[in-house]
Structures are given as structure tokens and as C-alpha cells.
Nucleic acid binder design. Structure first.
Lengths: 337, 337
DNA sequence: CTGAAAGCGCTTACAG
DNA sequence: CTGAAAGCGCTTACAG
């Protein structure tokens, strides 16, 4: 490929001048600028990003820190949002090939040797061994759905509490009183806030919450399966369940079906996320919508602002949520009505 | 971050020597090697990849060329396989932020300016405007599920014909004779081979193929919906349908359900891909399994071989396929039996 | 407005 | 076995 020297020679100027027109510096005469621009086109010259990065100390690259698999639909849609925001930003996404099984592996050092300008993290555990090091480094970072902050790290999340309250309200208004809650871990912001939303919703509607109605599990389909199995054992079985992910809801529904009952006739189920699959799953899921793509886009936009303004304080961004009613919720005993 | 100069000074050697131990050159005394290695650890030194890449003319980076959205489960699982293969390879994946809407955008030039060592492409159309340029460049490329070849480009795919024949055989053995085929475009290898498999399977079982039984559509859920709607109009409605993607199958099933019929009681449906969702969809899909993750891994492994051996001819790799029978196929009229 | 020169952090002949 | 020097393709004070 043509280098800046080739362009300089061809255009009859110095490499410094070529560099100036590439970078849109004002102190270049119109005539020179035109000639150089033309030569750049003729030679199909494109600056070598590595060389530029070497002197500027950056890479126009955003690294991703992810532990959950891509088959997770939340992750998938997030990536779509991220991709969109990156589109005309000048930044590319690099998927650091992490060897999390290797003890001596350091995610931060990987970022440093790749000169990554910023990191977007999701599916990150509070106690991830790489987290502390990342927060201590001064690599700008935006986390999604995790309330992790640092001098250079902010996060973006959804109105978790309000969304969950809406789901409870919806069920209560349908006439349910035995409403259970299948949740991910409670010891982080997302889990805690959804739990709060559930409790407050129940309280608002003066509904009783037996201890056995709150099941903590993980966000996968298997998590929903395990939790729902326990709920089915109860003598006072719930007539409705609020889950904190769509996958959990799908798992719960499969348990209900397997035991010969129907959704929503016998038990109503609400999911969380409104992923693509909540719509194509049969029956289509009633679920709490988060704007996943827009969360992904905002994460990137915010990150880029942080990268380009050292003094921009890492923000906490909250996106709205709302309930989407589809086919998995109905009045209690709907089958017979 | 510490540079090679810091290490050299601290260890009391030249940068050339440090470079030699980093790169495991043999001509370094044991004593020196030890001291330098220790200093590297002490200083937490990690080579700057951009600088190294600048002199070596490469980046230890693989670019991805993808036009289909990540929400496509085939793409998603492929990425998982790719991620796994990349794990200890020393290469990172870079998602080039493509601006395919911008006419002056050139994917190849983007690759060149990022110094990408190779490209893995999927969801690529034969007539993609960027394709010709990519094939002409000498960037090593592996395509997935597209029979695109070039001097430096090979591809990997599945036993498309054999897999489809198995599906037809399964249905024929169940007693079906009116078997329709919902396919993606026929003018590429994947589509053509599956079509051949269908025709040959039908012939083997001496089954008739009315022209109206072959519906060409696109691989999405919508594609399946449109095609199935047309099949439902037929006076001689098929009792079984082979689809060339799971998403198409899911779309077809939703149409069948909406018209008040049941799967598999009234109409049997077979998918293709055996994606994660074929299992959690209800009813669970009978589908032709392709080893998507292993396809992703092999694509990367092959690509790396191509990158590191200039004379390694771009291969064509074919992975096995097999039918996975689940709940969407049964004897014709199964409902009444 | 233009260009010579130093430098970013590496690798690689080459000389010793 | 070791190191001085040139060079990869850029940018940036700085001098003119």
C-alpha cells in the first residue's frame, strides 16, 4: 500500500504537509491542499492506523470485556446497538481474545498492549478478578447493567425498579394475589433494584409475600427452570410469576407446560428484557421492555465522550423501561372463564 | 506503560537483546535471558502491538466481514466458535465498523489501514460490491457458508445435500408423500445443494414434486412466514415442509398455528441449523444439525494457517451434518391416530 | 505557508 | 553472544 512518502513524492511536497492535509490542519494553502488531496485519491492512499497510533499513543479502538456467551440474546442485541453507534465514529471494536482460564492472563495488560482507547463491559461480575485492575488503570470504561464505578468508569442501566413495579401492578390489576418472583443474584444493583420493585409493587397492592415466593437463581433458561420447579412444589402455588430475564421466563414456562398446566390459563408469567425472542417464542412473552439497542449505542457514545475529554466525569445513565403485554399473562384461572 | 527501553536500561542490556528474548531467539546467553525475563516481569512490561506490527507489517488481528445482524442465531453461534478458536491463538478479532451505506467506503481499504492479517466472512452475498475488491486483494480470507473462492480465499460449509436428503428420508419414512421445500436463494452453493438434496431425496422415495411445492424466500422468520402462507393456499396442501433454516421453520410454524392447525399433528416441519433456539422453541424443532461452533473454529484455524503460510492453498472444508429429530415431525394425520 | 528532523516502540540485518 | 543503527509510517514542535 502507498505510504505517506509516496504521496509526498508524487505531490511534490513534504510528508509533513501531507500529514497536515490528512488531519485538516488550517495552515496549508488551498492549492497545496487540493493537489495533495487529489494525489491521495489517485494513489488510494489510506493512513496506516498503527503508525498513527504509535505516535499518538492511541488506537481508535474500543475493547470489549464480556464473560457471558454471545448466544445470550441480551448480549446479542447489545452488540447490535454497539455496532450501530460505532458506525461512523472512526472507532473499531476489538474482541480481546481473553484467556480467562489462564491465571497469569491480565485483561488490562492485554488492553494496554493493544493500546485500546476504552472498554465496554457487560456480563461482568462484581468480583471478577480482572475488575479491580481495570478500575485502577485509567482506561475509560462503560459498564452495562452493573453498578460499577471508578475514577474513569461509569455505567448504563435501565429503570429496573419502576419496570418491575409495572409488571406487578399489571398482574395485581388482573386479579392475581399470589405473585412470585424469580430473580438473578440480589447482591448487585440490577438484582437489588428489581427485587425492591417487586416488594414495593406487592406492598402498594397490599399483597402478601411469603418468603418462599422469592427465588434467586441465574439469568439463564436453566435458572428459570430450577426456580420454577421449586415454586411448583409449594402447597400455596403462585398464580403468577415475575422473572428477571426472558430466558428465565422461557425456562419457567417449559416447567409449567411439562407439569401439564397452561400459560397463561393456570399460571401467568412475565419476563424481563423484551429480547427478540420474547416475541417469537410461543406463547409470546409479556415482558418488561428495556431498550437494549439504545443502551448499547449510548454506552458507546458515552465512552467515546469520555475518551475524547479526559475531564468528562464517568456518568451513570438510566434508560426508561415499560411493560409490553403479550400472551403469557391473563386473569387467574383464565382457562375456565 | 514500560517500554522496551525501560526494560533494557533496568536489565543493563541493549533493546536489541530485550527484543531477542521477547521473541525467543536462540542467540542469547542463559544468564542474560534470565535477567531480562525477570525484569520484564518486574516492570510488567508488555510489548506494544502497534509498534511491533508497524515493523512486521502485520497486526495479529482478524477482521470480520458480516452483513447479517448479530441477532441471527447462526451468526451468534458462529461467533462463539470463532471466539473459542481465537482464545490462545495470539490473534484478536476486530469488528470493522463498516459504513456500507456510504458509497465511497471501501471495506478492503479499511482492512488495509488497520493492517488486518486475515478476514473471516459470513452472510456475504455473491454480488456484494466489496467482494470483488476483497478477492483481488491478497488478504487471506475464509468464507462461511458461501462458495466463494479466490487466490487467497477459501470457504467452509456443511454437507448441505446429504443433510437435506436425510430430512426428506425421515419424512418419507414417516409416511409423508406431500413434502414441500422452503428455501433461501437457489443461486449460491448452499441454496443449490440443499435444493438438490431435496429433489434427490424425493426422487429416491419416488415422490412427486409439484412446482408449487418449492418456495424460494429468505432465511429469516419473515421469509418462512411468507412462504408458508403461499403453501397454505394450495388445494393440495403439503403435509410436511422442509425449511432451510430454523428461523424459517419457526416462521412457518407460526403461520400453521395461526390458521388453526397443529404441528406436527397436521403438518410436520423440519428446520436447518440446529441453533440454540431450535431446542427451546416450543414445540422443539426437528432440524438438520450443522456443527456451527466447530465451523466457526475451523474457519479461524484454517485462516490462521493461511496467514502464516503464504503458500498454503485456500481450502474448501466441508463439515458433516445430521438430522436431529425432536417434536415437529410425526406421521401424517398424527392428530387423529 | 512549508519542510527538516526528532521521536513513537519495536525488529532486524550487520559488525564485532 | 551482544549492541549500534536503520527503518517501519506516521505526527509534531520548530525554524524559516
Amino acid at each position: 500500500m502507498a505510504s505517506i512518502h509516496d504521496v509526498a513524492k508524487e505531490a511534490g511536497v513534504s510528508v509533513a504537509t501531507v500529514s497536515k492535509v490528512i488531519n485538516n490542519y488550517p495552515d496549508v494553502s488551498d492549492k497545496t491542499r487540493k493537489k495533495v488531496s487529489q494525489t491521495i485519491k489517485d494513489l488510494k492512499y489510506h493512513p496506516n492506523v498503527a503508525a498513527r497510533g504509535l505516535v499518538k499513543g492511541r488506537s481508535w479502538t474500543v475493547g470489549v470485556f464480556v464473560t457471558s456467551p454471545f448466544t445470550n440474546p441480551f448480549v446479542t442485541e447489545l452488540l447490535e446497538g454497539i455496532k450501530t453507534a460505532l458506525q461512523n465514529s472512526g472507532y473499531d471494536l476489538v474482541l480481546l481474545s481473553t484467556r480467562f482460564d489462564d491465571d497469569s492472563y491480565s485483561f488490562v495488560e492485554h488492553c494496554l498492549s493493544r493500546n485500546v482507547d476504552g472498554v465496554v463491559g457487560f456480563g461482568v461480575d462484581r468480583d471478577d478478578p480482572h475488575l479491580e485492575e481495570l478500575l485502577k488503570s485509567d482506561i475509560p470504561t462503560m459498564f452495562v447493567d452493573a453498578d460499577i464505578r471508578g475514577p474513569r468508569a461509569g455505567y448504563i442501566t435501565t429503570e429496573n425498579k419502576a419496570g418491575t413495579m409495572q409488571a406487578v401492578a399489571h398482574l395485581a390489576e388482573l386479579g392475581h394475589s399470589r405473585i412470585a418472583f424469580i430473580s438473578g443474584e440480589l447482591d448487585n444493583a440490577v438484582g437489588a433494584l428489581r427485587h425492591e420493585g417487586y416488594l414495593e409493587g406487592m406492598k402498594t397492592h397490599k399483597l402478601n409475600v411469603p418468603e418462599s415466593y422469592v427465588k434467586v437463581s441465574d439469568y439463564s433458561m436453566e435458572g428459570g427452570t430450577v426456580a420454577m420447579n421449586e415454586l411448583m412444589e409449594l402447597k400455596e402455588r403462585p398464580t403468577a410469576v415475575v422473572c428477571t430475564s426472558d430466558m428465565m421466563a422461557i425456562g419457567a414456562i417449559s416447567v409449567i407446560h411439562r407439569s401439564g398446566l397452561s400459560v397463561p390459563e393456570d399460571i401467568s408469567v412475565v419476563g424481563f428484557d423484551n429480547t427478540y425472542y420474547s416475541e417469537i417464542f410461543s406463547p409470546a412473552l409479556t415482558t418488561i421492555n428495556q431498550n437494549i439497542r439504545s443502551i448499547g449505542s449510548h454506552a458507546i457514545e458515552t465512552l467515546i465522550t469520555m475518551i475524547e475529554n479526559t475531564d468528562f466525569l464517568p456518568p451513570v445513565v438510566t434508560e426508561p423501561s415499560n411493560l409490553v403485554v403479550r400472551c403469557t399473562t391473563a386473569k387467574p384461572g383464565g382457562a375456565k372463564s
